[in-house]
Simulated assay, not measured.
Amino acid sequence: MKQNFTVRQGALDGVEAFLSVARHRNFRKAAAELKVTPSAMSQAIRTLEARIGAALFIRTTRSVGLTEAGERFLSRAGPAFEELVAASEVARDLGQRPTGLLRLSVPPSVVPILLEPLIASFCQAYPEIELEIVASGELVDLAAEGFDAGIRPGEFVAADMIAVRLTPPLPFVVVGSPDYLRQRNVPQRIEDLRSHACLRMRRSNGSIAPWPFVDGNKSVEAIVSGPLIAHDYPTLLGAAMQGAGLAQVPQPLASVPVADGRLQEVLRSFAVTLPGLFLYYPGKRQVLPKLRAFIDHVRHRGDAEARA
Score class of each variant (00 low, 15 high):
66 L>H: 08
140 V>C: 03
236 L>F: 14
240 A>S: 09
122 F>N: 05
25 R>F: 01
204 S>K: 03
163 A>H: 04
173 V>A: 05
214 V>L: 03
129 I>D: 00
61 T>C: 14
31 A>Y: 05
249 V>S: 02
195 S>P: 03
293 A>K: 05
125 A>F: 04
222 A>M: 12
257 P>A: 05
26 N>G: 05
93 D>A: 12
13 D>E: 12
267 L>I: 08
34 L>R: 09
282 P>G: 11
7 V>K: 06
72 R>G: 09
73 F>K: 02
173 V>C: 08
303 D>S: 07
19 L>P: 06
41 M>R: 15
81 F>R: 10
133 I>F: 10
120 A>V: 13
201 M>T: 04
122 F>D: 06
278 F>Y: 09
222 A>L: 03
198 C>R: 01
224 V>S: 10
204 S>P: 02
142 L>C: 06
164 V>I: 15
82 E>L: 13
20 S>R: 05
10 G>L: 02
264 Q>E: 14
163 A>P: 01
35 K>A: 13
188 Q>S: 13
294 F>M: 12
237 L>F: 01
236 L>K: 02
206 G>D: 11
188 Q>D: 08
88 S>Y: 11
10 G>C: 07
208 I>P: 04
219 S>K: 15
2 K>F: 14
222 A>D: 00
290 K>C: 09
98 P>Q: 04
244 A>L: 11
269 S>Q: 09
301 R>S: 08
136 S>A: 15
275 P>S: 13
84 L>F: 09
118 L>E: 09
56 L>I: 14
299 R>Y: 06
296 D>M: 13
169 P>D: 12
289 P>K: 05
38 P>L: 08
259 A>K: 08
42 S>R: 15
284 K>P: 01
304 A>M: 14
57 F>M: 15
136 S>W: 12
